[in-house]
Design a protein around this nucleic acid. Sequence first.
DNA 1: ATACGACTTCAAGTCAACTTGAGGTCAAGC
DNA 2: GCTTGACCTCAAGTTGACTTGAAGTCGTAT
Lengths: 140, 140
Amino acid sequence: MKLLDIGEITERSGVKPSTLRYYEEVGLIQSVTRHGLRRQYEPQILTKLALITLAKAGGFSLNEIAGMFSEQGQLQIPRDQIRERADQIDEQIKELTALRDVLHHVADCPAPSHLECPSFQRMLKTTGKRQQTKRKPPTK
Amino acid sequence: MKLLDIGEITERSGVKPSTLRYYEEVGLIQSVTRHGLRRQYEPQILTKLALITLAKAGGFSLNEIAGMFSEQGQLQIPRDQIRERADQIDEQIKELTALRDVLHHVADCPAPSHLECPSFQRMLKTTGKRQQTKRKPPTK
DNA sequence: ATACGACTTCAAGTCAACTTGAGGTCAAGC
DNA sequence: GCTTGACCTCAAGTTGACTTGAAGTCGTAT
């Protein structure tokens, strides 16, 4: 199994060297050896990075993501946790959908004051006063 | 139109006083007057806060959110921008869906090594090397 | 043998979005 | 008229996720 050096990983994954080093520092990934000073990685790190990227885009923190992998680097989540995370994601999808609907409403409804339009109000009702939850920043 | 003081806003919206003051500082909201020192708000700020909460949950930054409101505090986005934002949201929904599918796969596929399972790989392919995009953190 | 370029370390800096803390003010109730 | 409690200001601190910069090290090509 050929090893890839950090430059190659960056090129193929779009994740910068500084970020890779940071991820290693916080224990999210690891390099298997060095060529001189250069970190060398197993090719499967690319899959892992794709997963990390995906999860970040989904609003998970690096800590949460780290919790999704076993010591051996495999994805390893107890079933109930998977269920829980899937539910979190569904919840987030609902919120995004609501937001999109609001935007569409704004685009279509010619009322001068959306903030008072009843159907607009109705859309927001579901958003209620969900209290403080803490999630993570996606990547642009 | 009765005014609400900050305590009431906090109670009804779930947004802390310190956060409200911060939002005001950055120009996202404004209080209309004071009762003594106490900020007083128009009731419609509640709708605005609901929108803000929603948009934050959708991964928008406060700056982006601020850009969605006109000077007068109404939602006011040019149509093409709405379209753009709606597309952004759809994109994010796709990513979240992919993530959820990956989780479900992990829950169901008994293969010892997901990272090598071909259907797993396939799911990640779509995630490709989308380069650096910058989005925002939801609330837990 | 030397130069080059791509990496290396380590500490410090940055950014968004808040929160915290110290010390102060004010209206309402007793 | 005094206390109380909920607010106020302002500066500084916090957290997560990185990035930047200075100074150094290698392998490879010439």
